[in-house]
Design a protein around this nucleic acid. Structure first.
Length: 404
DNA sequence: TCTGGGGTCCTAGGACCC
DNA sequence: TCTGGGGTCCTAGGACCC
């Protein structure tokens, strides 16, 4: 039989990635319920070991709630560096199995296995076993692999068997699988869309695929078209390798305050920190941004955002801060603020620095600060409020060293 | 028990122009 | 007193992903 030329895509998903890295590094955590979370009292769980998941501990849960349902839970403060290093190792490993690797997130990737003239699922399955063995050997971690003819179904496959799974969904098998599969299982259909579909009498992918396209379009707009294809298990998006992946379109940072506040001085202090973080990333990317968005989450969890289009793109931390602060002052928060976020979009990578000497001096100072921080670590030097000044009305900021 | 932080994409409504 | 229509840009908000 001549194999039909079809794409074969693998999706590889690391199992409970952050928690698994912690258990690997610390043998006393193995076999025990572990959850990785951030620092501070207002944090959430970012990964739970399978032992913890068995108790119902989930990503996104506040640690207090997790401890209630799993009293023996061991909480570990996450370490981004460790995960990034392990991730880089895994992604490099994948390159041995396919020239086309799309890094989908820190712990998952798509591999285009359509390399031979007559690719077969049988061969792909053998490759997947090799990948799993290599990942385990090199990193001590397990992963789940899904293999199918497109990214949508490959991702679905990797989700069907965890941990340490290997699921092949051939084109022949997909229709039967989708017939009874709840729509919410597909990546891209979240709780809101699931609820709307349910009101329309659509619960399974099978029903979604058969639903009149014009009605989906009418209800969901552009998403309707996509939903129709998803219901049929179709996805034409290519695997995009890192070197061809688009550059970031926005740079943002946000922070949940240690306590809610309406104090503009305190809020300005947070804005200054956020502006420095955003500015530094822009400059590291030789970019500047022409749209600044300030996001505020109030004490009641409601969110509002205000954006300002800038006629001169910015990357200097103090420029970002001044604009963000003006927006905040105009917004006049009506409730105590829980979270602040600063994002720059409208990214421009060609804008030249102003030729005015004053501007060059400002940027020179900023550049020296970046160099020091790059060399000695984040926040070694940063802009701070001049002693005794009110942070909401800082005309000039003094430079202070904060790290001993 | 008390709910993070980093992104992308889409939509609706209003302003504005011709 | 009644007041088009198309296109584009901007803004705010929402859904979704990890």
């Amino acid at each position: 039989m001549i194999a039909k030329k079809t794409s074969i895509i693998a999706h590889i998903d690391m199992n409970a990635f952050f928690a698994s890295v912690e258990q690997r590094n610390n043998p006393s955590l193995r076999g025990r319920p572990v959850a990785v979370c951030g620092t501070g009292k207002r944090t959430i769980i970012s990964a739970a070991s399978y032992e913890a998941k068995a108790y119902g501990v989930k990503t996104g849960m506040p640690p207090g709630q997790a401890l209630k349902i799993c009293p023996g839970l061991i909480l570990v403060t996450g370490s981004g560096r460790k995960y990034i290093d392990t991730s880089a190792k895994i992604m490099a490993l994948f390159k041995n199995f396919s020239p086309t690797v799309e890094v989908a997130s820190i712990d998952e990737a798509f591999l285009d296995l359509t390399t031979s003239a007559a690719p077969s699922f049988h061969e792909a399955k053998k490759t997947a076993r090799c990948i799993k063995e290599a990942v385990l050997y090199e990193t001590g971690l397990t992963c789940s692999v899904g293999i199918a003819c497109n990214k949508l179904l490959a991702k679905l496959g990797s989700d069907l068997q965890k941990p340490d799974g290997l699921v092949i969904i051939t084109p022949e098998e997909s229709a039967a699988l989708l017939e009874t599969l709840p729509v919410g299982k597909l990546c891209g259909i979240g709780p809101s869309t699931t609820a709307v579909l349910r009101l329309m009498g659509i619960r399974t992918c099978g029903q979604l695929g058969k639903y009149p396209l014009y009605l989906l379009r009418r209800r969901f707009g552009a998403l309707g078209e996509k939903l129709h294809l998803m219901g049929l298990g179709l996805d034409y998006s290519p695997v995009i390798p890192l070197e061809r992946s688009p550059k970031a379109k926005s740079f943002g940072h946000s922070v949940t305050l240690s306590r809610d506040t309406s104090d503009i001085g305190l809020l300005s202090g947070y804005l200054l920190q956020l502006s420095q973080a955003v500015g530094r990333r822009l400059r590291a990317d030789a970019a500047c941004g022409s749209v600044l968005t300030l996001m505020v989450r109030y004490t009641d969890f409601s969110i509002t955002s205000r954006q300002k289009k800038l006629y001169t793109p910015v990357s200097h931390s103090l420029d970002i801060f001044n604009i963000a602060r003006d927006i905040l002052l105009n917004l006049k928060p009506h409730l105590p603020v829980r979270l602040l976020g600063v994002t720059l979009s409208g990214i421009n990578r060609t804008e030249q620095l102003s030729l005015f000497s004053m501007e060059n001096k400002r940027y020179a100072v900023q550049q020296v600060m970046d160099d020091i921080n790059n060399r000695y670590g984040d926040k070694t030097v940063r802009w701070g409020a001049a002693a005794g000044s009110t942070p909401c009305r800082i005309p000039v900021l003094s430079l202070c060293t904060v790290k001993q």
